[in-house]
Design a protein around this nucleic acid. Structure first.
Lengths: 213, 213
DNA sequence: TAGATTGTTAATCGATTAACAATC
DNA sequence: TAGATTGTTAATCGATTAACAATC
């Protein structure tokens, strides 16, 4: 009965996050059961993929009723660990940073940006969207003090590495990097890259290809 | 000599976008030649992957000097079609939308957001970061008039499908979707998904896993 | 029961990695 | 020449797809 630690793929983690939000909405709408193909159509995947993902976290359904929404949601929340919540630090309070502060509301249950940092002394000391902005020098002590685990890098590419190093030194184990540059971090730190310019250029490329219509 | 149309992978397109920006910077720094591993370390990939990508667009280097930076940059620009430029429309001028207006400057050479739209009449008529905001009713005529090919969907998930349908009807062939919901569009329209919440939740998951240090 | 769905296994597909000859 | 790099081919790896028995 001692099952092997399930090999959860990285992509599965991302899809579980999406399932979670869909299930949350469905639950509020009063849906109690759903089939894999329903969840697939709400998330843009295939039914088989949904079943694989749920199997990989050890959740089973029945051929008759499909999956129980409430139980599945609990299971995913539990698996992703969103019930506990995690503190997030934002570095760089420029245009992008301010947008992120507005996008991820302060003191949100699962993920909350609880501290922001900027090199510009003008911005330090201000409170934006409920989030306090600190000077760069305070990064390490504040992140340590508040037990922050995740850092968002929203500074220009040239500064990104220094920011990543400082965040890592302060004890962060996950980084979301908006700068279009690779970050060198210790092996125990996870970096996720999010390059909006790349996404837009990709779309533009395909849009141009399909222009002649 | 009639070579087969090279099968360029979707991921390659994204990486070419990143190479392009690195090459642009290197060129300004006066670098004339570079090896695949140099480009790889600047973009977080492997040398073999860089070589595959460049080969796939028919660009070759020499064992002695590597690749010529200027020629490579021209080739990639040409391939991605950035030299011509493409018009982008933004739909949704909330927190995220305004951030995007600030992030992708108006009248940028290759990609410029030349029109924004919002349901809120308050926002329509204003000019943000040099970009004019229109009412939702003007979407189809304005997008058609200005020959806009790409649409950015920055509205809540519930409205995303309607916005996508309108943009498609107006002649857009590429969509960048920030809403966490799949979009049903005609086959000739390309949709790219960018879910910031998913990215952040993924990082948080891995960060928590690695917490015990 | 009949029918749709689940969970499992085998087959397929694509991309990455490894090995190597050719080049300057 | 020696050495590092390029371009090419074969091998490996993983993920997706397809087929099918089990289930309610």
């Amino acid at each position: 009965m001692c099952s092997v630690p399930a090999p959860i793929s990285e992509k599965t983690i991302g899809r579980l996050s999406l399932y979670r939000r869909v299930l949350d909405r469905l639950l509020r709408e009063g849906v109690e059961n759903l089939y894999s193909h329903q969840l697939a159509s709400s998330t843009g995947g295939t039914a088989a993929q949904v079943r694989r993902d749920l199997m990989s976290i050890g959740f089973t359904g029945s051929p008759a009723r499909g999956y129980r929404v409430q139980e599945l949601l609990n299971r995913i929340n539990d698996f992703l660990g969103v019930t506990d919540g995690v503190g997030v630090a934002l570095v760089g309070v420029g245009n992008l940073g301010r947008a992120l502060l507005a996008y991820f509301p302060y003191r949100r249950p699962s993920l909350s940006i609880i501290a922001a940092f900027d090199r510009d002394p003008e911005r330090a000391g201000r409170v934006i969207n409920g989030c306090r902005c600190y000077a760069m020098e305070e990064l390490v002590p504040v992140v340590r003090e508040q037990n922050i685990l995740v850092g968002i890098v929203a500074v220009p590419a040239a500064e990104a590495q220094n920011v990543a190093t400082a965040l890592t030194e302060a004890g962060v184990t996950g980084l979301l990097n908006f700068a279009p540059t690779p970050l060198r971090v210790p092996a125990h730190v996870r970096v996720e890259y999010l390059d909006m310019t790349m996404s837009l250029e990709k779309v533009a490329y395909f849009a141009r290809q399909r222009k002649p219509m």
